[in-house]
């Protein structure tokens, strides 16, 4: 399972992820991290059996946790050209044998590189 963590100003300097790993023993994989002035956002992946305990541990430490689908392919807008396939850094997008384009949610790291490449604006990064 993937989750997006949002840290506020005070929390960015604390070793929160390390603390959660120690507490839950969950092998957390950091897929993407971005820290701006004041806030931080980290996309993590945890095994499904540790998902519940990990999320509650982060929430207890005052971190905003968002789970669910982040990248969405709008079927009615997509023309299946395949341009997005070439800009994906993790090969999460592929064309099926009938040329239908699909995004593999398990591989996607929510980076958004495909969003501005799509000529019909058929890919949405939902908040």
């Amino acid at each position: 399972m993937k989750a997006r963590l949002r840290f506020d100003k005070e929390k960015t300097s604390e070793p929160i992820i390390a603390s959660v790993i120690l507490r839950t023993k969950a092998p957390i994989n950091i897929l993407r991290a971005q820290v701006d002035e004041g806030t931080g956002e980290v996309l993590i992946e945890v095994p499904d059996d540790k998902a519940e305990s990990t999320i509650s541990a982060f929430k207890q430490m005052g971190v905003d946790v968002h789970v669910g689908r982040f990248i969405e392919l709008l079927r009615e807008k997509c023309i299946d050209c395949g341009h997005c396939i070439t800009v994906c850094p993790v090969d999460a997008i592929s064309a099926q044998s009938d040329l239908t384009v699909e995004i593999d949610q398990n591989k996607c790291v929510d980076c958004g590189a495909c969003v501005d490449a799509c000529p019909t604006r058929a890919i949405k990064l939902s908040e």
Partner: peptide
């Protein structure tokens, strides 16, 4: 084929037009 060879590298290649709709 989806891959183009350029100087020993294989680069992902896809159209901007839709072959599926062309069919």
């Amino acid at each position: 084929s989806g891959k183009l060879k350029l100087k020993e590298r294989e680069i992902p290649a896809q159209p901007l037009s839709s072959l599926k709709i062309a069919r």
